[in-house]
């Protein structure tokens, strides 16, 4: 992706508050990446182009994503994105309220990692750096105990 493309979509990203960490690929999306998966595009709604756990709610409401991260990956809603030892967090962006736009995952460093559509993965200093017209705003945080090996 070019700097111009990044700036157009995410005006708050600068050369020092994010870094690119992968090649671009359509193979997986933000939800899959937040779940630690890189082999499918995770999204509700049916159709061959998207994977969604059988029996899960199939709307594009943020509620559907919350329920999947709770039931499939052991997350639960929490009040904020502060780094907590022993926990990993995700945050969900919505726009308009209640409609899913993006999900990012927190790293042990306190930075966050996001898969940008079919573009690259990036690490970014805070969730707010991706807020704006395209991805809306962070409205929900979830956390789970760091999985043990």
């Amino acid at each position: 992706m070019s700097a111009e493309q990044v700036q157009a979509w995410f005006p708050r990203l600068t050369g020092t508050n994010h870094r690119i960490t992968s090649q671009s690929t359509p193979q997986y999306n933000c939800a899959a990446w937040a779940a630690g998966c890189t082999d499918k595009w995770w999204e509700p709604g049916g159709g061959k182009g998207k994977f969604w756990p059988p029996g899960a709610r199939t709307t594009l409401a943020a509620r559907a994503y919350i329920e999947v991260f709770e039931s499939e990956f052991g997350y639960s809603v929490c009040p904020d994105g502060q780094l907590e030892p022993g926990y990993e967090k995700i945050c969900i962006y919505t726009s308009p309220p209640g409609v899913f736009k993006h999900v990012a995952r927190q790293l042990p460093t306190g930075w966050w990692t996001s898969k940008l559509g079919r573009g690259e993965d990036i690490e970014h200093q805070s969730p707010e750096l991706l807020e704006g017209d395209r991805y809306g705003h962070v409205t929900i945080y979830l956390k789970r105990p760091v999985p043990t090996e």
């Binding site: 992706m1 493309q5 979509w9 995410f10 999306n29 933000c30 939800a31 595009w41 999204e43 709604g45 159709g47 182009g49 998207k50 594009l60 899913f100 736009k101 993006h102 940008l116 559509g117 079919r118 573009g119 395209r134 991805y135």
Partner: peptide
């Protein structure tokens, strides 16, 4: 490609 590069949802892309 340009206008959907970072779209997070399949529905938005297609």
């Amino acid at each position: 490609r340009d206008e959907t590069l970072f779209s997070s949802t399949y529905e938005e892309i297609v």
